[in-house]
């Protein structure tokens, strides 16, 4: 019975870890093309979830709310690229760090003013009564998170491998100057990566919302974990973030069981520190070769 409980905890935790993985994947997408990430991504997750909640309030069916919320995420992603990142990249400065943080803060204020400070439940038609699989209780809600995450990551990877635009995306990641010489606009590709990043982040918000409730601070902890996962896995391995996400989710769940829920956030931070000390390029990251 005891081992079963451990497995149970690990599985529930791992399924939550998929959300970290998806947000981390969003970081990878923009980092690949532009070597920049949106430090306000947590606010993007939160705003998309709140927007989706408003869509639900208007009576829109769930299957329309999901794409609606994701579309909103794309718009936010494009806005961040246009209003923050591009200005800095054009001047070859690192100003995108501060600019994306500022945009995130603005988003946070906007959320507090528009939707209020309270956490609210996020209704979903997906049932939360557990079903038994191999002796473990899993709720369809948790499963929907895993399926949603894997589906959207699979689709983006398919896009990158099978379409010419996707290959162009990879080309910009590999060598931006050479890609430009092929007629591929780096600016447009970076824009695309921010749109996609917004899309996956919004989906992460929508998937996790029924479990965590929705409010302006819903993503502040989530985003820290996603950072940890992205850094520990390495900023160029989509496969890596899923594994590390699952691992961290399970680890957190077990930590809070053994040490108390107050220690829940510790494993992510410890992993982050360890990764930065031992493998700065990430467990699955390629060592970056600098030509001199």
């Amino acid at each position: 019975m005891y081992t079963l409980l451990i497995v149970q905890l690990a599985v529930s935790g791992a399924l939550m870890g998929m959300v970290y993985a998806l947000i981390a994947y969003g970081f990878q997408l923009t980092f690949a093309t532009s070597k920049s990430i949106n430090f306000g991504q947590g606010e993007l997750v939160m705003l998309s979830a709140l927007f989706s909640l408003t869509l639900i309030d208007t009576g829109l069916p769930y299957w329309l709310v999901v794409p609606g919320g994701m579309l909103f995420g794309v718009v936010l992603g494009l806005f961040v690229e246009r209003a923050g990142v591009r200005l800095a990249l054009e001047q070859k400065s690192e100003g995108w760090i501060l600019l994306t943080i500022i945009l995130g803060l603005l988003g946070f204020s906007a959320a507090e003013n528009i939707w209020g400070r309270d956490d609210r439940p996020f209704p979903t038609p997906i049932p939360s009564d557990p079903v038994h699989i191999f002796g473990i209780d899993v709720t369809p809600l948790e499963l929907s998170v895993a399926i949603g995450v894997l589906a959207v990551m699979g689709l983006v990877e398919l896009f990158k491998r099978k379409t010419l635009l996707g290959k162009a995306f990879e080309a910009v990641s590999a060598d931006r100057d050479a890609a430009q010489l092929m007629g591929i606009s780096a600016t447009r590709t970076i824009q695309l990566s921010y749109g996609l990043s917004g899309l996956v982040a919004a989906l992460a918000g929508i998937l996790v919302a029924p479990i965590t409730t929705v409010g302006p601070t819903m993503a502040s902890v989530l985003i820290l974990k996603a950072f940890s996962v992205a850094v520990v896995a390495g900023l160029d391995s989509g496969f890596g973030v899923v594994l590390i996400g699952l691992f961290l989710g399970a680890l957190e769940s077990l930590t809070s069981f053994y040490l108390g829920s107050g220690w829940r956030e510790a494993p992510g931070l410890v992993l982050l520190i360890l990764a930065l000390a031992v493998r700065p390029n990430g467990v699955f990251g390629k060592a970056s070769i600098r030509k001199v």
Binding site: L164, K167, A174, A178, I184
Partner: peptide, 16 residues
């Protein structure tokens, strides 16, 4: 483009 295949490199040459 090092990580991409030879054929993908060629296809990207014709991107425009």
């Amino acid at each position: 483009f090092g990580p991409l295949t030879v054929e993908d490199n060629l296809l990207l040459g014709a991107f425009g």
